[in-house]
Design a protein around this nucleic acid. Structure first.
Lengths: 212, 212
DNA sequence: AGAAAAGTTGACGCTGCGTCATTTTCGACG
DNA sequence: CGTCGAAAATGACGCAGCGTCAACTTTTCT
């Protein structure tokens, strides 16, 4: 009659400990990266933050780089469902773009709010500027979305890879600058990015001159 | 009757050696970064590529990070005059944007052509994605240019920081993708970026609806 | 020429890395 | 329960690269 386990904690004590250790290392790493910066951080710094021994670290990750990557993957994992929701709600190109930008800027603000609150000496942008495979998956997601939206709406004579790259570039750079302003204004950044891309696109699509 | 020195090599033997050593270290670093990647590179790897001793490295740079930064500064130093020329030739906003994008993409292709020619296992993008102070200077340059162009042309009710960020973001991301295509087509990237930003801007500026 | 200043050298002590033999913990089964 | 094998944790060890520094060499100045 004992219920076997909750959903996210596996059956045995063994497996539970394993998951907990992995998580502890990830959290410790996040903390240390934020405190002293990624470059300065050593594997020992990370493991010291947990109650594990040095050797144990290597049961979970091969290196500090791999921990970082895992953190990045974690971030993208958290972001993807948001994008999916946007995709499902979107009725046309504009609403998709707007939703996607809002989702990204909002996510970015959320991810960095701890770091910001604590003065964030370093590494405010965990998991953002990195080009992990997971990041490329998101890129392709967006590209596919854009392609679909364009098909649905109008022409498709656009270089969707470049268009996606431009959209993503705007998001990244604008996001960085948004984070530096106080108060952080997600709406403002969303409006700016959306309008720019929307207008830019109609201008690009409407290759045909005199479309008025 | 002995001519003192050429223009770029200072008077004494001492000073000349110093400049040469510094340059040797920078070139060695560039080579090693390109060959085995920035992370894997050690100060010893760099110095081994020169005929200097380990200790000598530290007479010139505090760390491998500092060498990298110096390389980045070198890159931006080489880029800035190109931007200046564009600024001087530009007659209106569009020609400036086009010139700036072309200058950047061309520069990027040039900077990476060695790495690309040699199979570029790593580190194709030296001095690009880094946010050095020098990079921020260029950002501000561009922003000032954009502001001036907008004043000259029309309104100025735009958030020029965000606009610049968007322009730069497009350049960066598009540039990355341009480098991955064969053959590398600077014209194509320039056309795409220019048209997108131009159209986006008229759409943004022309907040007034029905501008036809 | 001789002395002082500037620069180079490589050996040294130290820190952090990744491994691995040993020990501890867990869970399966009689 | 007790026993046993597998899984995981531990921390000491050898090693690699770091940054320093006292000794040495080269240049410059007078």
């Amino acid at each position: 009659m004992n219920s076997p386990a909750t959903l996210d904690s596996p059956s045995g004590k063994r497996a539970r400990a394993k998951a907990a250790n992995r998580q502890a290392i990830l959290e410790a790493a996040r903390a240390v990266f934020a405190r002293i910066g990624y470059d300065a951080t050593t594997v020992r710094d990370i493991i010291r933050e947990t109650d594990l021994a040095a050797g144990t670290f290597y049961n979970y990750f091969r290196s500090k780089e791999e921990v970082f990557e895992a953190l990045a993957v974690e971030s993208t994992r958290r972001f993807r469902p948001r994008l999916k929701e946007v995709r499902e709600r979107a009725t046309d190109f504009e609403s998709f773009i707007e939703g996607a930008y809002r989702a990204y800027f909002d996510f970015l603000a959320g991810e960095n709010e701890d770091a910001i609150r604590h003065g964030a000496p370093h590494m405010a942008l965990i998991g953002v500027r990195v080009d992990t495979p997971e990041m490329q998956v998101i890129f392709e997601d967006i590209r596919a979305d854009i392609e679909r939206m364009l098909d649905r709406d109008k022409l498709e004579s656009v270089d969707t890879e470049y268009l996606t790259a431009a959209a993503v570039g705007i998001a990244r750079e604008l996001g960085d600058h948004m984070l530096k302003r106080r108060p952080i204004d997600v709406d403002e950044a969303t409006r700016f990015a959306t309008q720019l891309l929307k207008a830019g696109l109609t201008g690009t699509l409407g290759d045909v001159p005199g479309s008025c």
